[in-house]
Simulated assay, not measured.
Amino acid sequence: MPNIAVAVVGAETPGNVGTIARSMKNFGLSELYLVDPPELDPDGEAYGFAGHAREDVLPNATEVEFSYLTEQFYTVACTATTNEDATKHVRYPFIEPAALSDELAGLDADVCIVFGRERVGLTNDELAQLDRICSIPADGDYPVLNLAQAATIVLYELRELTVEETQHPKQAHERADEHEIEGLHETFSEYLHEVGHPEEKIPKTERLFRRLAGRASPTGREARTLRGVLRRGALVASGEIPRPGTSDPGDEPNQKDESNRENE
């Protein structure tokens, strides 16, 4: 797994540098190199935009010459413009960020992802010295992203190489056990009978519900909650519990007794 650094060349806006530092921290990166950077005032917008990265990534950033990047790293240049083909090789061939992680995974070299200036990006002379071109696919009429936004997208796509453990649980969705799913179907069937669903339509309705549950893949809690709702609906339909908003007839006051009290 390669060590991955980030470099920003000729940034004009301190806030963009701070935002890139924050994105680096979001996605497990810490090594930031700056070529011809703007002044990064600890009380200014760079540190204000950096979030928790103001404590480590940003203050530990190293100012270097452009040649340092080409001498020390396998470099990936990020650019918006790739309107070239096999006859021109300044910005061609290129790779999209989504494919970058797989390509770099087996690389036996330190890697630096290089971003350019806000207005003009990296110059052709700079691109000619870098090893690989990376470009974010966007609308052809306006493909140029904000510098910090572009960096965030690229670093996000590299997370498989740079983030050991995310804030998410190991499973984003845990389907209920089969016995819980089957219990849900049994309860639904009981519900259909209790509410008086037409007998001849029950098998088809049960089948439709099974297909619906199969696509939804409910969690255990969802299955249990649905069973509880269906059970209560069946009890209301059978009259075992009163409908909401109504009271048990046994709880109604006796009108004759009330009249007698008024005449006492």
Rank of each mutant, 00 (worst) to 15 (best):
V57G: 05
A150D: 02
T75N: 07
G233V: 03
E55F: 15
R232V: 06
Y68W: 14
E206H: 07
Y142I: 01
T123S: 15
A80Y: 12
A138C: 01
S101Q: 13
T187K: 10
F94Y: 15
R243A: 15
Q255L: 13
P38M: 11
L122Y: 07
E178R: 02
A50W: 03
V236A: 07
P59C: 07
R243K: 14
T205W: 07
F66T: 05
T19A: 15
E180Y: 08
A11I: 02
K204C: 00
Y33M: 03
E164P: 03
V17C: 02
R211Q: 13
G245V: 01
H197E: 09
S67Q: 14
L230T: 08
E262P: 00
G116S: 04
A128S: 15
N60W: 01
V64L: 09
I181H: 08
E199Q: 12
E222P: 11
T13R: 14
P203L: 08
A50K: 09
G245D: 04
R211I: 10
T246G: 08
K204H: 10
L235D: 06
P14S: 09
A50E: 07
L184R: 00
V76C: 14
H193N: 07
E164F: 02
S259F: 13
K170C: 02
L230C: 07
E174N: 13
G121H: 00
D36L: 01
A148K: 02
G220S: 15
I181E: 04
L230Q: 00
A176R: 11
H197G: 00
Q149M: 10
S30Y: 13
R117G: 04
E45L: 08
D257I: 11
V17P: 05
C78P: 03
L155P: 00
T162N: 10
E65S: 15
N60L: 09
L32M: 11
S23K: 02
S259P: 00
E165Y: 08
I136M: 11
R221V: 08
A148M: 11
D131W: 06
G214R: 12
E157K: 01
E118M: 13
R117Y: 09
L147V: 10
H185A: 13
E222Y: 01
P242W: 01
V114Y: 01
T81P: 00
A5K: 06
D110F: 06
L235R: 14
A7W: 06
R215I: 10
R22A: 06
